[in-house]
Amino acid sequence: MTRDRHHQGPLEPQEVEELLPWYVTGRVSREDAKGIEAGLKAMPDLTGKLADVQREREAVARAAEAVEPAPPENLQRLLQQVETTRQWRVPRTDGQTHASGRLKAAIGRSIVWQAAFALACVAIVFLGIQVYNPPAPGELGLATRIGDPGDVTLLVTFQPDARTGDVAALLTSVNAAIIGGPKPDGAYVVQIPAGRAGHIDAVTASLLSRQDLVAAVLRQE
């Protein structure tokens, strides 16, 4: 733990006291440790507080060490559950799908093929621009840059067996993108551009209608 870079003066007594629980376990930065030691020398009453913290720590550690281990059958039960539980794969929406890996393998390292592939991509983008008639900003949200102020985020939990391509297609269909996660509960942070923010209920409903892919949707405050 390191203090604010703008706050490099001596530690206040309250700061020293706050850090004592981490000082006794050696989990403060070298800089903070020096500040605490200087504080302990300058303020003798803090020495008594350090002794209190050490007593608390000893009591907590002793009590935790006295906890009997988990029942031995717990590991067997876990391994049985593992046998019947599929691992989750990372849904990606940044174009790095498994399909792209296969395409890369198919193109190979040949300069000619790579150049041809690059030309084809340029041609597709050019044709796309020609045929695409962009809506007014905010009309459909398609022209709204992801990351605008006013964007709304949702916490979306996907089904464990959801396929990457299906998830990507679903998110594209509602003009959403994964911008973070997974959280400890497995949820991803999904961003809805500002242009679609007014339709958040409709977007949520669209996501929830795909129960084969989406387990839960929560509006992030």
Partner: peptide, 19 residues
């Protein structure tokens, strides 16, 4: 409950290790 939560935690580690 602690034994159950321990297993649920490790099962999530199994599920989410790739993430």
């Amino acid at each position: 409950a602690a034994a159950d939560v321990l297993n649920e935690t490790m099962l999530d580690v199994w599920r989410q290790a790739g993430r």
